[in-house]
Amino acid sequence: MSSSRIASPLRTLIAHELRTLRREGTFSTLLGIFSSVTLFSVFIGWSTRSTTIAIYAATVTTLKAAGVSHIAPNPLLGVSTLSIFNNLIIYTLLVGALLAIVIGHRSFVRDRKSGVVPLLLSRPAGRPLYIAGKLCGISAALLFILFSMFVVSALSTLLIPALHLSGGEFLSLAAFYTVSFLYLAFFAALGLLFGVYMSNESLALLAPVLVWIAVVFILPELSTGQNPVSLLNPVTLAHVPSSGTFFSSARAILSPFSFGQDYTALALHFLRISPGALDFGTILKLLVASTVAGAASMFALQKYSTTADQIA
């Protein structure tokens, strides 16, 4: 089969996936949610930062009036302006991942419920191309949404006079959205995988959500000793993990599966909240995880029986 003959059905499948997302209103809903979340996050970040700077000034006045001669420098000095986007890390970690799961889940379950899967799989395009089309369509939608979030973030910094990002900071912001895509693509592929693999619709949605809970809450808690709610504070996230043999052993064992911590570490680095060199291995790990989840859904579809194509 020539490459152009393969590319054509793939393009059709991608276009169909995007069209369905648009027709269902999913695309506009997601775009609306993510754009609002970005604007809201910028407002919260800016308001908190400017209030804390004012509180520092008030603290200096109070301490001087109390006769204190040695006053600590402003702890926010040297913190990059990009840190005002820190809430976006949490929203991507929570809201983004859950929405990505829902998109991936619905992508196959929708076809399955409408009974078109046996018909689609009888076409010469083949099973791997069918899943590849779904994965590429979902990825294209996620990329467009994240690009829109980047544009909203960039424009919002122009609206607030106190916020001026340098060229390097804009690049860092773009890198933050790129790693966010890798993280979201992993969960979207996971939603698709369980949608193909499980016959019960509710359990097919619950299974990736349980994986998400493990990735976002359980693994970080086991390897750092932090409580679940502390893991939702970007400042605490950048804090040093707990010491002790148990936690260091848990970190070593769980490290290959700690995608949530990998994502937050990269996001904190790109938003310049956490110092230190960039770990390219972590980016590669997220890329491999998304690819493996996508490949697993292709494998699940190979085993999929069209004669038992029922969903409960």
Partner: peptide, 20 residues
């Protein structure tokens, strides 16, 4: 989470007022 991250004391690991 917003309420927590807007807390001025939560802007610095260990607490803003403790650092001052």
């Amino acid at each position: 989470q917003i309420g927590d991250t807007m807390d001025p004391d939560n802007q610095v690991p260990g607490g803003f007022f403790a650092s001052m």
